[in-house]
Design a protein around this nucleic acid. Sequence first.
DNA 1: TGGAAATGTCAACGGGTGTTGGCCTACGGT
DNA 2: ACCGTAGGCCAACACCCGTTGACATTTCCA
Lengths: 193, 193
Amino acid sequence: MTATTEPARPRRSDATRAAILRAARDRFAAEGYERATIRAIAADARIDPSMVMRYYGNKEGLFAAAAEFDLRLPDLTAVPPGQLGEVLIRHFLTRWEGDETLAALLRTASTNPGAAERMRALFTDQLTAAVAAFGTDPATTARRAGLVASQTLGIAFTRYIVKLPPMVAMAPEELVAWVAPTLQHYLTGLPEK
Amino acid sequence: MTATTEPARPRRSDATRAAILRAARDRFAAEGYERATIRAIAADARIDPSMVMRYYGNKEGLFAAAAEFDLRLPDLTAVPPGQLGEVLIRHFLTRWEGDETLAALLRTASTNPGAAERMRALFTDQLTAAVAAFGTDPATTARRAGLVASQTLGIAFTRYIVKLPPMVAMAPEELVAWVAPTLQHYLTGLPEK
DNA sequence: TGGAAATGTCAACGGGTGTTGGCCTACGGT
DNA sequence: ACCGTAGGCCAACACCCGTTGACATTTCCA
């Protein structure tokens, strides 16, 4: 036993672990939880399926490791209040363009209860915390965070999963221009009527 | 042969067909395409799995029949231009509260290419047509329709699939009050900058 | 009333899945 | 130089799936 928190002495199998994880993310993102088979993932990683079990226990464990995701929200208190929407949508777009983990999570959350729970936690905890940080009425923060989630996840769903042609075609900056006012409204506005 | 377009002389098996379809919609909506097994659907409908094959060919055929869905968009030209957003979001909410077909389609579109294609057609054709009907600049209609789809599908996804607590908790009218301006902006507004 | 067509049941098939345990190999500390 | 052990492969098990074809039953027209 080295220390209570291991200083990550590199194991010889770390390369294999990483290969498995990369292949798993690819497959989960492209095909969803049920269609992505352990056998296919193992083949992509050029190892035996039993290795996956050894290192990640079972398929759920593998997914849990592969779908680790952090929104990495910036500190919103440092942003001019009038630019919150723009900063947020731009952050989201750059955050998950080129990282397919979100796609994997999204695809799987549709059918897998565990992934849905994780998705809920992601947005409930991280987003709500970020929204609460710049002090609107605490009674409305949860709802504001939910609305922001609905618009951003809707964009992710239509752009990366369903691939609605106009949503795929739009340049990130155009998307920002359209969506920023929406998020701004959800964050700092009041409902109509 | 009766006529080229059959006047729907009721067959004795129509009850069975309907039972299968109802069970299929329930299962597809609750579990998605891959987890919903023909065996389980047949058990729900209290018939033999082979009946499903006889009446719908195969699993894809069954899904195609069960996921028949129409947005039933109202004629937007008859709506005061300032209330377009409100009318639209209210229509969507009432349209699919209590009809789980959309949930089935949504869950399945995440993993099944055919369902994704159907989803694309649904919003590309029907929504775009409705948006085009009241004549904004034709060059932007597709994008406007896409943005409306992103917000409405985002609401459906967070409220009915992932079940984000704040999105589930909100009353329909509160949702309308928040989202109507967003859709209004996408339909008749201009992008910032 | 006869018999063809429609409706339904039963048992099985071929294939793919997650998962397991045994065995071989090659590294690395002593 | 040795040998424990971590890393890796192979074959198999048990299960569940979609799908099929043969057979029983009911319906209904001529």
